[in-house]
Amino acid sequence: MAEQLQGRTVFITGSGGVLGSTYVRRMLDEGARVIGSDLPGHRAEALKEAHAGNENFRFYELDVSEEDQVVEIFKRILADGWEPNVVLNNAAITGELLMGAGKGFPDFADLEVKDWEKTMRTNLTAPFMVARQMDRDIVGKYPCTLINVASMYALNGAHHRIYDGMPFKNFSAYGVSKAGIHGLTLWLAGYWADRGATVNTIAPGAVFNGHSDEFQRRVGELIMLNRMAKPDEIADAMLFLASKAAGYMTGQLVNVDGGFSGW
């Protein structure tokens, strides 16, 4: 795979999270130049510290929900002499992040419109704005690819019972926004087809991130492989989609979910 990522310059939004930071590490290991971005805070600082001194890594603070910041980001990157030919629309907000630590998780009937709209702004409108800026600044100027990150819940209904008694619930706005992501992929894949750009969606399954044994058991029963994913297992598929080997793929949804979507 290493030679497939040589010459790749990958721009990743939301690169400080569990999956985002894994994509950064793995792509650097495989020979890519990587541009990370995230909100200012401890995740951004940890990412910068992890790759301090690596000449193939650059970091920009970015709030993808702010239109003016998205409009400027590619101009800043290009002005600094980097030309991203792979873009990962990875930034997203989950119910847990939205509610914040220690806050109660609302039932659907109590979900506030402002929280729904904030999720849509980050998870769906922001990827549109990133893609629009790609269209303005890089698409057609050189070959490039966009990878939109969806979820196992993008095209599959949630199993609400597995959240009974858990400190979090399945979040309606998250699944709906992730379903919309693949709609964006399909539209862009055709629109950019004659301009040297490909667009695909990856739909990660349930990724272990400190979940309780009971929750792991409940989720595992819904998955053919009977377990949650390790972050590196999702990254394996992401590396392929970002590589030259995926050059004939566009408009596709790639499920990496251990068989969840097969049942």
Rank of each mutant, 00 (worst) to 15 (best):
L111Y: 08
E96R: 13
E117P: 01
P127C: 04
P106G: 10
F128D: 00
N89K: 03
V130W: 01
V86C: 08
F108Y: 15
G102I: 08
E117D: 15
K103H: 15
A126D: 03
V113M: 14
P127V: 02
M129I: 02
T94Y: 08
K114P: 00
L98S: 09
E117T: 11
N89D: 06
T119V: 05
R121N: 15
A101E: 12
D107Y: 11
R132K: 15
T122K: 02
K118M: 15
L98N: 13
L97W: 05
P106L: 10
A101F: 06
N89L: 04
M129D: 01
V87R: 01
T119L: 03
A126R: 01
E96D: 13
G104R: 12
A109M: 13
K118N: 14
A126T: 05
V87K: 00
T122F: 00
W116R: 06
M129Y: 03
L124A: 02
D107A: 12
E117N: 14
V113Q: 10
G100C: 10
G104N: 13
M120C: 12
F105G: 02
D110E: 15
L88T: 03
A91G: 07
N85S: 09
V86R: 07
N85M: 05
W116L: 13
M120H: 10
V87E: 02
G95Y: 07
T119D: 02
G102V: 09
W116K: 05
G95P: 05
L124R: 00
E117R: 13
D115Q: 09
N90H: 14
T94R: 06
V113C: 11
K114H: 10
G104P: 04
A109F: 11
G100M: 10
G104I: 08
A131N: 10
T122H: 00
D110H: 07
D110T: 03
T125W: 05
K103W: 03
R121S: 13
N123K: 09
A126I: 03
L124V: 04
V130A: 02
T94F: 08
A91M: 07
L98Q: 12
F128K: 01
R121C: 08
L111C: 11
D110N: 13
V86P: 01
A126Q: 02
N90S: 07
N85W: 01
K103E: 12
F108M: 12
R132T: 04
G95S: 09
F128S: 00
L98A: 13
R132M: 09
V130I: 15
V86K: 05
T119G: 03
L97M: 14
N90G: 06
A101P: 00
G102L: 11
M120T: 06
A126C: 09
L97R: 12
A101V: 08
L111N: 08
L97T: 09
T122C: 12
A92H: 00
